[in-house]
Design a protein around this nucleic acid. Structure first.
Length: 114
DNA sequence: CCCTTGACTATCT
DNA sequence: GAGATAGCCAAGG
């Protein structure tokens, strides 16, 4: 295992573990927060290398859609986890369950249909 | 080495 | 907003 992976993986795992219940971060945001800008594509690799239980389902693409193919099993698994945490998928985009701001209520009530 | 592969992104049309 | 395009960068063949 390369030295890069050793440090990179640890940094990534820490950030992913810090994502609050029901919330999400993009691969690029995680990479940046871990101190590795431009390494968005490495984030998924670091997560799949983890043997511990990581809330990987809280990591999505920069446009807030899921990274897996729509018909894949992984897509369904991730979606189920997010839904169970109170999030909602609108037009494929994850909407976190914050019900205390007018902005989010507007998104739920007036946002585009399915 | 050179080439290909991604659970990616920003920036054009 | 949906494609296309060009960067991105470690791994593995």
């Amino acid at each position: 295992m390369s030295l890069f992976q050793a440090k990179f993986d640890t940094a990534i795992w820490e950030i992913v573990s810090s994502i609050p219940y029901g919330q999400v971060m993009s691969y690029g945001e995680v990479a940046r927060a871990a101190g590795y800008p431009r390494h968005a594509r490495m984030v998924s690799r670091a997560m799949s290398r983890s043997n511990k239980a990581l809330p990987w389902h809280r990591v999505v693409k920069s446009d807030r859609t899921l990274a897996f193919p729509f018909d894949s099993k992984d897509y369904k698994t991730q979606k189920d986890h997010l839904l169970s945490e109170g999030a909602v998928l609108l037009k494929g985009k994850v909407i976190p369950p914050k019900k205390d701001t007018a902005e989010d209520l507007d998104a739920l009530i007036w946002g585009p249909e399915d």
